[in-house]
Amino acid sequence: MPQQRILGVAVIGTGRMGADHVRRIDEVTSGARVAAVVDVDGERAKTVAERIEGCAAYTETAAALASPEVDAVLIASPGPAHEAALLQALDLDLPVLCEKPLTPDPAGALRVLEAEQRLGRRRIQVGFMRRYDAGFQRLKAAIDGGAIGRPLMLHCQHRNVATPPGFTTQMLINDSVVHEIDTTRWLLDQEITAVTVLRPAPSSAAPDHLGDPQLVLFETSGGAVVDVEIFANCGFGYQVRCEAVGERGTARTGDETGLFTQAAGQWGGTIPQDFVVRFADAYDRQVQRWVDATRRGTVEGPGCWDGYAAAAVCAAGVQAQGTGQRTPVELPERPTYH
């Protein structure tokens, strides 16, 4: 694809995340435009499309991807719909940025991975946006550069104000801790080999059916140990922190508070209330980098293998939730082209 061509993107799903990506491509990202939007709710898709010049609305993914105006695909639909859209995009050899999860289950993720392998080249990037956050990038550089010596442990916190209706205990792993799963693999360049989940007494602020908070422990192929506090109904804000402990020092990200004030006998800052605010810059950077790479004819960032590995660890984590036992993670050999 010539570098000068404006990338026509089809956004699949126009819910909260999809609508935010439509806005991002239309208002923030350079080198791309929203050529199509897809949603099973035709009126919602039409409403989104009407705000953007030259954007068509569809209720079927296949119809949108067949449009000659579409050069690439951004998938932001619910996870169970990802596999079908991904396979359709691969059949047309279209580049894809897919919001996590790649698919909700390891078997589906493996099918997508194998379909991409049959093409013989990468076409899919998975939307693990923390890899594009400035603080996490500095932490990665500190680890890779040897500033703290060989990493031995990670201490992670993942807190959210409250869970939406319908949020389940399993979603603590599949929808929340999945980010720490990818962060661990990326920061340490190691696979997660086992998961243990410890469940303290639930918070009184959590819905009756939800076992929140939890402490999730990972063991890695390089001998590191990772602990993740997931507290999805903490009540006060959205916080994501990660501290790497090495042989010669530590490095931490997530303490950023934005504007810090001292006035009227008080001091302090603000805590973001949701992930869209906390990681706005990371989402912007991720989409811009995806567009730039796609226009060059390349793919970068987390790929199908990362999506598959995350799904496999999530499955082990959900099993560990239910049994209270240490649960091994079984992965096949990593494809060489990744």
Rank of each mutant, 00 (worst) to 15 (best):
A63H: 03
E27V: 00
I271T: 14
E256H: 13
T184W: 10
T103E: 12
T59Q: 13
R326G: 02
T323S: 15
R44Q: 07
G297Y: 11
A134F: 10
I25Y: 02
E83I: 01
P200W: 05
A316D: 11
V195Q: 02
P302I: 05
P68F: 10
E99S: 12
Q288V: 02
D281E: 15
S204I: 06
I230H: 03
R24A: 12
D227H: 13
W290G: 04
P164N: 06
V287T: 13
F231C: 09
G324A: 04
D71S: 04
L188W: 09
A72I: 04
A56W: 10
Q157R: 12
S203K: 00
H21Y: 14
K46D: 12
Q273Y: 12
A312K: 04
E53V: 08
V28G: 05
P106D: 01
A264L: 13
H21I: 05
G120Y: 10
V313P: 12
G265S: 01
T298R: 14
Q273K: 14
T29D: 08
P165N: 01
R118Q: 15
T14S: 06
I143D: 03
L259E: 13
V299D: 03
C156N: 14
R111D: 03
L215T: 08
T336S: 12
I12N: 01
V73P: 05
H338Y: 14
I6Q: 14
R289P: 00
M129I: 10
F136K: 00
L7E: 08
A49Y: 05
T257H: 13
H338T: 11
G269H: 00
R248Q: 14
A32N: 07
I181E: 11
G297E: 07
I124E: 12
V11W: 08
L113W: 15
R24V: 06
V34H: 08
R111C: 04
D39F: 00
G237K: 08
G42E: 08
E114H: 12
G303T: 03
M153A: 14
L215E: 09
M171N: 07
G301M: 07
N174H: 13
P328L: 00
G223H: 05
P200E: 06
H82V: 12
L187G: 11
D144C: 04
D20C: 00
R51E: 13
G265D: 06
Q157P: 00
R118P: 01
E50C: 07
E243Y: 00
A320C: 12
Q273G: 15
R23C: 06
A205D: 05
R122C: 07
E53A: 13
T261E: 10
N160G: 08
G120W: 12
C156A: 13
G18V: 07
D227C: 11
P2W: 09
G235T: 06
C304Q: 02
